[in-house]
Design a protein around this nucleic acid. Structure first.
Lengths: 133, 133
DNA sequence: ATTGTTGCAAAAGCTTTGCACCAGC
DNA sequence: GCTGGTGCAAAGCTTTTGCAACAAT
């Protein structure tokens, strides 16, 4: 769980380590309220402004990824191997899925529109396995 | 520009017709501020609460689609043939693109996770043709 | 006449900011 | 000691809500 802070010009603080750990142990992307809850479970009192600042800093440095799934707010997750999300419209669960959007798509986009793709986000909405029963 | 309101139990009002027309004539998804600007150009004074209520109603009825592209707010567009978006990280322009995410992806998701896909959203981020020059 | 729609004003939810103080390096 | 991080309180922005008046069917 050692994010090389110094390389990025960042200082290591209790709050930052905790946020990295919390996101690392979560099985889905967390919103700020969720992160604050976990911090409280660890008996860490961290101001909301600080949480937002930590997340913004981490986002700029590429340590966390910011995602939106139609809730009108952000969720955050550790930046890891690129993946996509399955959002259950029944229970709200968010699962990761690793499927490969091949480079063919980027090439197709470039060919059709002259647009140079640098990244993408892909979310699936539907019904998770449990909610189908 | 005739959305069959009555079938949906909706009443036809000036504000609603204007919103449909504005979104129909826009070349990219608009946020609420943008819609209000267009309404003002038409000399229509429509309260922001009303704009939000119109958009929410239209969204529920499947008349408009709500999208998020990492801005912390919603944008709206007329629900038409399914397509995706190219978001230029330099100038902010949002283009539509029609590429086909084949059903193979839905099948792959179901096979891997038992998740029944109903819809998806896919956005590409990168540099548009003009901004490359 | 009924029912849905709007305006107004207030509030709610998420996120940011200014500033003084404090901690990591 | 310097630089950057934090807490606190206030504000900013987007979106929602209650209620009374109004308009469409």
């Amino acid at each position: 769980m050692n994010t090389d802070y110094s390389k990025q010009g960042l200082k290591q603080t209790e709050a930052r380590s905790a946020v990295v750990m919390i996101l690392g142990n979560s099985n889905g992307p967390l919103d700020v309220a969720g992160i604050k809850e976990e911090l409280e479970k660890l008996d860490l009192k961290v101001d909301q402004a600080t949480v937002y600042r930590i997340l913004n800093t981490f986002h700029e440095k590429g340590i966390v990824k910011r995602i939106e799934i139609g809730e009108g707010k952000y969720r955050y997750e550790i930046e890891k191997e690129h993946h996509h999300h399955l959002v259950c419209t029944n229970c709200g669960k968010i699962e990761d899925i690793e499927i490969d959007l091949s480079d063919d798509f980027d090439r197709e986009v470039f060919k059709k529109k002259g647009f140079r793709v640098e990244s993408h986000s892909l979310e699936f909405f539907g019904v998770c396995e449990l909610c189908q029963k």
